[in-house]
């Protein structure tokens, strides 16, 4: 069983984001990048499926600059067998563009299972799984919190508004992974040593023209300073009043 995990290199979640001079992208100087947190669940699930089946390969796949090799090394250190960077220096934002480039790669290098995170924590587009499955003609289940595989069919659980949904889906499939699915493993030191000997390939990304464009990007307005309303029990009515009428929080 060949499993592909789509991984995005995103700014570390504790980064203080600055908007670049063009007003449409972020300043990447001095920013440290890491594997998108939801993709960690996808990678872990791929490794668990491979362990369950006792055979197969796990390939980590990303689109990004050559610098994304670092995140791919991390995936290899955690246990992926192979990694591929589809390189581009463009800052791609359009989910359809990404899906098309990944689909082109996956048509040439077929896999039965494609796993990805439910969204990238930087752009929050939530587009990849559905978009990619449509292009590949695969089944698709999104935001899974539990996943089992038996005889080529997945049973997946999803948390939906107020309920838990159980679905089945035949392979080949694209599955997007949510928090709670598993506990991603750490890269251990032996894994890191082994990673250096595993294949890490680069090929230019075959990107179609973007249909979508970022027009402008701005930071949320700075939060106003807090205000101390009073102290002790006497201040409670004023606090309720402020929460209700000013903050409209209750």
């Amino acid at each position: 069983m060949d499993i592909v995990v789509c991984i995005k290199r995103v700014p570390a979640t504790d980064t203080a984001i600055k908007i670049a001079a063009d007003g449409k992208s972020i300043e990447t100087n001095g920013v440290s990048f890491e594997m998108n947190a939801y993709d960690e669940f996808a990678l872990e699930q791929a490794l668990l499926i491979k362990e369950q089946l006792g055979e197969g390969t796990v390939t980590a796949l990303t689109i990004g600059p050559s610098l994304a090799q670092k995140v791919m090394r991390d995936a290899l250190a955690r246990g992926a067998d192979k990694a591929v960077v589809l390189t581009t220096d463009e800052w791609i934002y359009d989910g359809a563009q990404v899906a098309q480039a990944l689909a082109t790669y996956l048509q040439a290098n077929p896999a039965q299972i494609v796993l990805c995170g439910k969204q990238a924590v930087d752009s929050d587009n939530n587009q990849l799984a559905g978009n990619l499955a449509a292009r590949l003609g695969f089944g698709c289940v999104t935001e899974v919190t539990k996943l089992e595989l038996a005889d080529g069919t997945f049973t997946a659980e999803r948390d939906i508004e107020g309920a838990r949904e159980v679905v089945t889906c035949k392979t080949p499939a694209v599955i997007s992974c949510n928090k709670g699915l598993n506990q991603p493993r750490y890269a251990n030191l032996k894994g890191i040593m082994k990673a250096k000997k595993k294949p890490l390939e680069e090929a230019a990304a075959d990107l179609p023209a973007a249909a979508m464009e970022i027009v402008s990007l701005e930071l949320p307005p700075a939060r106003a300073d807090g205000r101390i309303i009073g102290e002790g029990v006497d201040a409670v009515p004023a606090l309720i009043e402020a929460l209700r009428n000013e903050a409209k929080a209750i």
Binding site: K70, R73, Y186, A195
Partner: peptide, 14 residues
């Protein structure tokens, strides 16, 4: 080296 940094970071995160 890149590998030494990865090892350091793995322990740091742990």
């Amino acid at each position: 080296t890149e590998e030494e940094l990865m090892i350091r970071d793995a322990v740091r995160s742990w």
